[in-house]
């Protein structure tokens, strides 16, 4: 793992991975509070999960690029 990523980032990966289940839970619970139909809940939560994940990964990449030369 440390050969692919700088050591500092590699040490962060296990903690960072928690963002996916946490995001999934937030998306599911939020969508379930908006809609009643199971299909609608799953569809909307998938969409919300993707949006939040893209946003978080984007922020992560931005911070990585900004700090890579530090």
């Amino acid at each position: 793992m440390s050969t692919l990523f700088p050591p500092l980032l590699a040490s962060q990966i296990p903690t960072l991975f928690y963002m996916f289940p946490v995001t999934a839970v937030i998306a599911l619970v939020y969508s379930a509070s908006r809609y009643e139909d199971a299909g609608a809940i799953l569809r909307k939560s998938c969409r919300l999960f993707s949006q939040i994940s893209v946003f978080l990964v984007g922020i992560l990449l931005l911070l990585y690029v900004l700090t890579v030369k530090l």
Binding site: V25, I26, V29, Y30, A32, S33, R34, Y35, E36
Partner: peptide, 18 residues
């Protein structure tokens, strides 16, 4: 904090499509 949404859903029903 997420359980607030579950409590409110039990009290008022879902926000849309109801």
């Amino acid at each position: 904090l997420l359980n607030i949404l579950a409590i409110w859903d039990a009290f008022e029903g879902p926000a849309y499509g109801i």
